[in-house]
Design a protein around this nucleic acid. Structure first.
Length: 295
DNA sequence: ATCCAGGAAGTCG
DNA sequence: CGACTTCATGGA
């Protein structure tokens, strides 16, 4: 994928000329993506890996991560505006070759339709602590409600930025007890949030999974309150980019039922799907999940 | 109204 | 280990 950063190269000027409709003044931190065969912002945001974003206009979204914000417009080309292009370049996984990943997956069972449908999905590189909290909230919950709870946590405890609130630090979250999160609508997950925030503030090392296998890291994360096998896999995929995991939720259970016509435990389903898709399991999971949930 | 949601904790065999 | 129950909340 060709990516152009900044506005002072010849090729960027060419893009600018072709996209007069955008009427943008190129800034140094703009990211431009011309070849969008492997990038669709709507698919990437709506495939369930991120909760802090919103559509702010036609083909235009604002996206939040940690204490940062960017605006993404996809109208022919993609333009990502922010004050930190390096951060968002990594966030959107722009140096990864999704064409190669999709070609490799196409040959595997049950993948063709899902890859064709969600061919613009990127697996984001998100913040581990933010993913930890977000997917604790996600357990047995609806996506609109997950977004609301996380939004209120940010507004209540996050650093105030220019027009938005950052995701709070572990220390800020650990300063509140379970009653606080219950009042925000977190339900029975409220004590999981206060206890896990406390654990991280007290030194639970969120860098360790970087140096662990998927299985090892899954067990490690499961020692935190509110984190089970599925939530751990989501954290490992969306924050640590570990692709040898396979989050099994209600939607993947439906996919498995379509594939095999059989019933099985989540553990068995996970093992079967990882054996099918190998080290591309995480990617396969996102294509299958998105295709099933939107059908 | 009843079901369900990107499930995990607690308890009991 | 595995099966089984309980856990708030609110949108569909």
């Amino acid at each position: 994928m060709k990516v152009i950063e900044g506005g002072r190269t010849n090729s960027a000027k060419t893009v600018k000329k072709r996209q007069k409709r955008l009427k943008n003044t190129m800034a140094d931190n703009d990211i431009i993506i011309k070849d969008t065969r492997d990038f669709d912002i709507r698919q990437t945001l709506d495939c369930g890996q991120i909760f802090r974003y919103s559509e702010i206009g036609e083909n235009e979204y604002e996206v939040f991560s940690k204490d940062k914000r960017c605006v993404v417009r996809q109208d022919g080309v993609v333009v990502i505006k922010s004050d930190d292009s390096a951060y968002w370049r990594r966030f959107f996984d722009l140096d990864n070759d999704y064409g190669a990943i999709k070609r490799a997956l196409m040959d595997k069972p049950f993948m063709k339709e899902a890859v064709e449908y969600g061919g613009g999905i990127r697996i984001l590189n998100q913040d581990p602590y933010e993913m930890l909290i977000s997917f604790i909230v996600s357990a047995n919950n609806h996506i609109p409600r997950i977004k609301g709870i996380l939004s209120r946590i940010c507004e209540g405890l996050g650093e105030k930025k220019d027009g938005y609130s950052a995701f709070p630090t572990p220390e800020a979250m650990a300063s509140k007890d379970a009653d606080y999160y219950a009042a925000l609508g977190a339900g029975y997950r409220a004590p999981y949030l206060s206890e896990t925030a406390r654990a991280v503030a007290d030194g639970f090392d969120l860098e360790k999974p970087l140096y662990m296998s998927g299985e090892e890291a899954n067990k490690y994360l499961c020692t935190l309150k509110g984190v089970g096998p599925k939530v751990a896999d989501c954290i490992l995929l969306f924050a640590y980019h570990k692709s040898d995991v396979f989050p099994v939720d209600t939607w993947i259970r439906k996919v498995y039922a379509d594939m095999t016509g059989k019933e099985a435990t989540n553990k068995e389903i996970r093992k079967y799907l990882i054996s099918t898709y190998g080290n591309l399991s995480g990617y396969a999971q996102q294509y299958l999940f998105f295709n099933k949930r939107e059908s």
